[in-house]
Write a protein that binds this DNA or RNA. Structure first.
Length: 585
RNA sequence: GGCCCCGUAGCUCAGCAGGAUAGAGCGGCCGCCUCCUAAGCGGCAGGUCACAGGUUCGAAUCCUGUCGGGGUCGCCA
């Protein structure tokens, strides 16, 4: 149920009737113009429950004045039972006040639909591939990855809720030089496991998370690799260590509540002919050539020298320069397998691709979009969401990470310290492209400026309320509450809360179209705020208390509203992957 | 220098598909617990939405330019 969509159809029908009666002269409104018609909550609640800009949008093509058109639309709208009052305001807004019963109906819808309230068919079953995390398999996930993991996972849930068929995917960078470095690093730990002194040379991974890998290598291979030249052991050790790192990463993700549908190996592309075939495809379109790039503008790198190389003509699709796909030594750049990988996603039939990257990869957005546009003949959109840095604090003090010493704050440490639910919610309290401050102390604080706690508190309060109601002899089952007579809910706080609940389905759709799960978190904060406010009105005015010993009917109505709030909080948290709590500790 | 992101209250940030008098939290000041969780609520103060143009009936929102902050810039991923 989406009340805004429902009322919008009323508006559109009224417009159609005017058109049929010839009241809309001039050119017939195009579908583009019609799409500009909105039905929204007005910014100022005193204007009414909903406002539509229909008259202002249609006035120009019709060649009439907005207010005149609004005056003609008004009586048609007022004729509908669901609309109690229509006023024309400002430059031509039509403000609608809905019949209270309509708001009351929201409560019924929430209680009937439960966790599915707000679920949308917007996506129409389109298939979406969301690739996220995709960290190099060379060590445990750290905080930066955590943000991407939470964002991608919540976005996936959001799109699923909005009616898309979603696949969560992780691209394993197991084909490049970094996994050879991993192998060499692990080999030193293998030597260490045999009682030898490891030589962690500059450029190797020093972290002691490789110590168990060394032990495991010893268990697997005994001492058979010890005196062998690198050629003999590199591949074995690399595959072994990569597999162990992926186990580690999978476990880290699981601790955060993230489960991937697909792990896609970069290495699997090598030797399969897929890279060559994809590049041949591009070549057939005239998009691959040998050429010499202009040096970058401005400050020239020290070792710059013009060099002919194999280039992809990404400028054909909006990039700034063409991009190399082979290194000087003839090996592929990382871009080449990435092209093949995205081609594979297109071939698997997805209608929409989403990549979630760290902001430091921003320079690669254009070339990736260019290649997907080229390979899909502009049919498959690719949206790339960049996640900004996470800055760590401990009670206001910046928390330094030293990557060189292999000391960095891992996903696991964050989750162990504050829990997966808190981690997830906090990671979504900023837009993805804004930097995020994460304070280990403040995220656990129990105060209003900690949104996680504040939202959870509302949920727990309602739980507590239901227990109280039960003790007072009131039935609190959903079916009982769903049949409550709601006409007594007329206080501003109550109507406001119902309006807020009615916004949820619409919010889900906007958040989904923008690929912005943080909007759900902000909505929940607002909803919680309105609930706390309502609660406290009962503190000030006993007549507004939710449990009224003298009026079981009204109590039931208010409990139904409270329960509906709880259900929507729970549904919203569900999208974010956060478990609602029932009791504050 | 090129490209990308950002610039909204003292601070941290929202701003819904361009809509009416721009919002919240923190900090400051003033109130509310014999009462369902005061871990909360209400109120007051605080803004040239970086700046200048443009499109529009209407711009914090879209376009161009300037300034400021961050990221990134062939053979790392």
């Amino acid at each position: 149920m989406n009340l805004f969509a429902e009322i919008k159809t009323v508006v559109l029908e009224a417009v159609a009737r005017l058109a049929a009666e010839g009241v809309l002269p001039g050119e017939p409104a195009t579908s583009e113009i019609m799409a500009g018609i909105t039905v929204e909550p007005p910014r100022d609640a005193s204007h009414g429950d909903m406002a539509t800009n229909a008259a202002m949008v249609l006035a120009r093509p019709a060649g009439v004045r907005p207010r005149d058109l609004a005056e003609k639309l008004a009586p048609l709208l007022e004729a509908d039972d669901r609309i109690a009052e229509v006023t024309v305001a400002g430059p031509g807004f039509i403000n609608l006040r809905l019949a209270p019963a309509l708001w009351h109906g929201v409560i019924g819808a929430v209680l009937a639909e439960g966790a599915d309230f707000g679920r949308s068919k917007m996506g129409a079953g389109q298939r979406v591939n969301i690739e996220f995390v995709s960290a190099n398999p060379t060590g445990p996930l750290h905080v930066g990855h955590t943000r991407g993991a939470v964002f991608g996972d919540a976005l996936a849930s959001l799109l699923d809720f909005a009616g898309y068929r979603v696949s969560r995917e992780y691209y394993i960078n197991d084909g490049g030089a970094q996994v050879d470095v991993l192998a060499r690093s692990a080999f030193e730990r293998y030597r260490e496991a045999h009682g030898l002194n490891p030589e962690i040379a500059e450029g190797l991974y020093p972290g002691d998370y490789l110590v168990p890998v060394g032990e495991a290598l010893k268990a697997e291979f005994g001492d058979t690799l010890l005196d062998q030249p690198e050629d003999a052991w590199l591949e074995k050790v690399r595959d072994f260590a990569t597999a162990m790192m992926m186990d580690l990463i999978r476990a880290d993700l699981k601790a955060l509540g993230v489960v991937m549908d697909v792990f896609y190996s970069e290495k699997s592309l090598y030797g399969s002919g897929r890279i060559e075939a994809t590049l041949a495809d591009l070549e057939a379109r005239g998009l691959i050539y040998q050429g010499v790039l202009e040096p970058p503008k401005g400050r020239l790198p020290e070792d710059w020298e013009p060099r002919p190389q194999t280039l992809f003509k990404s400028t054909e699709y909006g990039d700034d320069v063409d991009r190399p796909i082979r290194k000087a030594d003839g090996a592929w750049t990382y871009f080449a397998p990435d092209i093949a990988y995205h081609k594979d996603k297109i071939d698997r039939g997805f209608d929409l691709l989403i990549d979630v990257w760290g902001a430091d990869h921003g320079g690669y957005v254009k070339r990736m979009k260019a290649v997907v546009a080229a390979l899909s003949d502009n049919r498959v959109p690719l949206d790339i969401k960049l996640c900004q840095l996470v800055k760590l604090y401990k009670d206001g003090e910046p928390f330094k990470m030293s990557k060189r010493a292999g000391v960095f704050v891992t996903l696991r440490e964050v989750v162990d310290e504050v829990g997966a639910d808190v981690t997830r919610f906090v990671m979504l309290t900023r837009k993805n492209d804004a930097p995020l401050d994460f304070d280990f102390v403040k995220v656990l604080e129990q105060s209003r400026d900690n949104p996680v706690w504040y939202v959870q508190y509302a949920h727990a309060r309602i739980r507590s309320l239901m227990l109280r109601a039960g003790e007072a002899g009131l039935e609190t089952g959903d079916s009982t509450l769903a049949s409550a007579a709601l006409a007594g809910l007329i206080d501003d706080a109550e109507l406001g809360l119902m309006r807020k609940l009615a916004e949820f389905p619409r919010l889900v759709e906007t958040a989904a179209t923008h690929h912005e799960p943080h909007r759900v978190a902000f909505y929940l904060y607002d909803l919680a705020s309105e609930f706390h406010s309502w609660w406290n009105r009962g503190q000030d005015q006993p007549a507004l208390r939710m449990i009224r010993d003298d009026d079981p009917g009204l109590s039931r109505a208010r409990l139904a509203l409270a329960r509906a709030v709880q259900v929507v909080i729970s549904a919203g948290l569900g999208i974010l992957g956060v478990t609602p709590i029932n009791e504050m500790k």
